[in-house]
Design a binder for these strands. Structure first.
Lengths: 131, 131
DNA sequence: TTTAATTACTATATTAAAGTAGAAATTACA
DNA sequence: TGTAATTTCTACTTTAATATAGTAATTAAA
């Protein structure tokens, strides 16, 4: 896949919260609505909250709300939160063999594909998913 | 990553075998040459052999040889051998929610990126990596 | 025909991602 | 002030990918 499961969960959550802008929604409801395992979701939500893409409200009647204009949130912002991979990874691994200096045989081809994806992540906002 | 570790191992193996066309090379040598764990590599090699991208020769002085013209082996041929994912996966998973009929919100964008990658896999042959 | 070097097979171990469980901290409201 | 509903924290479990280990099968050559 292009992105992992956790990342796609997070994108879908923000899509939902964008649809319900200015309304508090609990993790329980998000979980039911999007069919994402509740306990796993709560951890995703905590990270989204730490990253200030959503605001969280604790306690009774608490929940989550999108923290920015949907048009201000790029897919890349979300994806990066749940990403650990070094961005320039090629078939020769982590940069020790393949680097800008000593490119691996696929470096340029890879880079093109990656840039195409990355560009898509950069210029797609949550706004677009909602309408 | 775009591809997983096993897939990149396999690509590098075929790159090497293409460089040593018509020469038998043992798994041990491949392992040393490419710094791929020996035991893991042997299983990758068995699969490449089953898929007839390489010919295997057992017994003393045995080893592996590329089985086709490097120009005839597409990256996609190699990648597909070590791939289990359904090819049209979007953020809504495996096709039950997102399909051609009921597209997910990112379906078209995703498809573009995927096609760009896929095209690259399809029109890049091992030949290109060697020169 | 024996030996050594190899591929092939099968089982197990390690690691990272995904998922689950329980309880602490917080808060609205009766 | 007590209770119930929530987020947050910490630990554990499961699953899939990657890696390791041991041995069987094969084969060239002494």
């Amino acid at each position: 896949m292009i992105i992992n499961k956790t990342q796609s969960y997070a994108i879908r959550v923000l899509e939902l919260l964008a649809q319900k802008k200015d309304i508090l929604i609990s993790a329980k409801k998000i979980s039911q609505n999007l069919d994402i395992p509740y306990k796993y979701l709560t951890r995703v939500m905590t990270k989204l909250s730490e990253s200030q893409l959503v605001n969280s409200y604790r306690g009774k009647d608490g929940g989550f709300m999108i923290a920015k204009e949907p048009s201000e949130i790029k897919l890349k912002d979300i994806i990066d939160i749940f990403s650990n991979e070094s961005p320039h990874q090629c078939i020769y691994g982590d940069g020790s063999i393949c680097s800008q200096k000593t490119k691996c045989t696929l470096h340029d081809k890879w880079q093109n594909s990656k840039e195409s994806i990355n560009e898509s992540f950069l210029n797609t906002t949550i706004q677009e998913l909602v309408k």
